[in-house]
């Protein structure tokens, strides 16, 4: 009974998301909604590793780009349908995640962050240089999954992906898996000492995250109809995935949706209103978030609510917790 009540709100929300094209007929608005959901899916995928497991990856463009190129190259060389290409994207991304995880999870803290950044850059440079396979910076055309005038099928597809990704985090928050990840984030040594297989859970989280990211990458490629390495494999892609989740609220279920809404809509509005300044505002927003509400918008709201209500068991904790290494203390 409680489970049903617990699920009622998410189901209603999912239904509302799916109902959007019934109300929004204008293709431009629908396209903006598609972008919101693209970034929601990416933010949610990132959130699994970056938010719940606390492993701040700045290399997720690798999975996004591999997804995009899986669809593009299978269609180009073997004439595969975009659907098969999408399946390929997911199939390739999981072992890639296992390989990247095997390397980067040996690194801790900032070295993990820099390691993911470095690996994604190496991949971008290789794709750029391997012209015989990828056409390098000349780019490659990508077939559409839904040929035809209507954007609605694109919307339904990415809406389902977003619901699946957000739903995964919703399920995680209620499962042992999510609990283990949070424990690893808060204190890996302690988690391991009570028998949590940290390496396995972190790798699993990365593989799930990579699968969603690659799927979205393939979708995005098909939506753009053309890709080149700088579009799908560059550092800003990685950064934006992280920023969406962080501004919305790291380690919260709906944080990525809030973050994507804020950033995509702000970008559309700023682009029209402030022209040259909109990326500057983006940087300032990130700084303000970290300084004044490090848990992001939803994290902050939850934190406030929690201060009022009776203390609850901590799962989605805030991120102002102190440093794991070094003996520095508050001074002055």
């Amino acid at each position: 009974m409680t489970r049903w009540r617990e699920a009622a709100i998410p189901l209603a929300l999912a239904a509302a998301v799916l109902a959007v094209p019934l109300v929004v007929k204008n293709p431009y608005h629908l396209n903006v909604a598609i972008l919101v959901l693209v970034w929601t899916t990416l933010g949610a995928a990132w959130n699994i590793v970056g938010g719940y497991a606390g492993q701040l990856s700045l290399g997720h463009a690798a999975f996004f780009g591999i997804g995009a190129y899986s669809l593009a190259l299978t269609a180009h060389y073997w004439g595969w349908s975009p659907w098969a290409g999408m399946a390929m994207a997911v199939a390739v991304s999981v072992p890639l995640a296992a390989a990247i995880g095997a390397i980067t999870f040996r690194l801790r803290g900032p070295y993990f962050v820099l390691g993911t950044l470095a690996l994604a850059e190496v991949l971008r440079l290789v794709v750029l240089a391997w012209r015989d396979l990828t056409y390098g910076a000349a780019g490659i055309m990508v077939p559409e999954i839904f040929p035809g005038l209507s954007r609605a099928p694109y919307y339904y597809f990415i809406a389902l992906a977003a619901i699946a990704a957000v739903g995964t985090t919703w399920w995680m928050e209620r499962s042992g898996f999510g609990y283990y990840l949070t424990a690893i984030r808060e204190d890996q040594e302690t988690a391991e000492s009570i028998g949590v297989n940290a390496a396995w859970y972190k790798n699993l989280a990365l593989m799930i995250s990579a699968a969603f990211t690659a799927l979205t990458g393939a979708f995005y490629a098909s939506h753009l109809m053309f890709i080149e390495p700088d579009i799908v494999l560059s550092e800003p892609v990685s950064v934006q995935m992280a920023v969406v989740a962080i501004i919305g609220g790291r380690g919260t279920v709906l944080g990525p949706l809030v973050g994507a809404l804020l950033l995509v809509l702000a970008s559309e509005i700023f682009r029209a209103q402030f022209q040259q300044a909109h990326l500057l505002i983006y940087g300032l927003l990130l700084m303000l978030t970290i300084l004044f509400m490090p848990g992001g918008v939803l994290g902050e709201i939850q934190h406030r609510l929690r201060l009022r209500a009776a203390p609850r068991p901590v799962i989605g904790t805030t991120f102002s917790s102190s440093h794991e290494s070094s003996g520095q203390r508050e001074v002055g």
């Binding site: 431009y28 396209n31 903006v32 972008l35 939506h223 753009l224 579009i231 559309e268």
Partner: peptide
């Protein structure tokens, strides 16, 4: 388009 293809589409 802020030098981004997705914005050019939009």
């Amino acid at each position: 388009d802020a030098s981004k293809p997705e914005n050019a589409i939009a």
